[in-house]
Design a protein around this nucleic acid. Structure first.
Lengths: 115, 115
DNA sequence: GGCATCCGTAAGCATAGACTTACGTAAGTG
DNA sequence: CACTTACGTAAGTCTATGCTTACGGATGCC
């Protein structure tokens, strides 16, 4: 269960649709299936992938199985993205400073010309 | 350029390796290729996908092309994940309260038995 | 001009994976 | 016990896509 699995799980549009549908609360497989353009077994297979990625949880209720969101997967992705985001901001910061330095040396201010 | 494209772009392990290599700063295609288990054209194709997802930027330097991280793609993913994260926390919060309520009604405290 | 380097793209191939239908199983209902 | 409902899984098909080799264009150097 790493962010790699999470990214791969959320890469598929159908799987994202399922995932986002669970945002409002737990749902059974048959309820998830209707409204989606794929068959119920397809939904089951997608749920299996989401579960292995730590994005989804299972709960039995009689003959039905209620699926709901799980924190672990999303948390793993969150940590990955945030740490990356810090690095990106930092690199842009130092880059901007270097650019500013160059500009001062040349004595012009046409940085925005390439935007 | 949506978070869907970003997720799909980062789902591939090779593409993630390229992306993470650019964390330390800009690199040319040939520099990116060595150390990776794929050919240089493959790297070019991956870079094309990353660029279309808004994750990567291009800059020419003589005969070389230097690639560096771009904020747009990662920012789109960040917004998506964070908004989702808020919802997940909220749903867990209300769920915990409901569970607590039930516990009080039954007069026991064995919530943790299923962990 | 002639040559080398760096790169993107086209074409073809092979595997991953998303989907379907068919089937077996578990739980509820009469 | 029959019957229904809800679900997972197996098997097979077909498309998407990641990879390779081959090629052509752009830039720099002599």
């Amino acid at each position: 269960m790493t962010y790699g699995n999470v990214l791969q799980a959320l890469a598929d549009p159908t799987r994202r649709a399922i995932f986002e549908r669970l945002r409002r609360g737990e749902l059974a497989v048959c309820d998830l299936a209707e409204g989606l353009p794929v068959s119920r077994p397809a939904v089951s297979q997608h749920l299996s992938v989401l579960r292995k990625a730590g994005l989804v949880n299972e709960r039995r209720d009689g003959v039905r199985r209620l699926y709901r969101l799980e924190r672990r997967g999303l948390q793993a992705l969150r940590v990955y993205v945030e740490s990356f985001w810090d690095d990106v901001l930092e690199s842009f910061k130092s880059e901007a400073e270097a650019q500013h330095q160059k500009t001062k040396e040349r004595g012009d201010d046409s940085i925005r010309s390439q935007e």
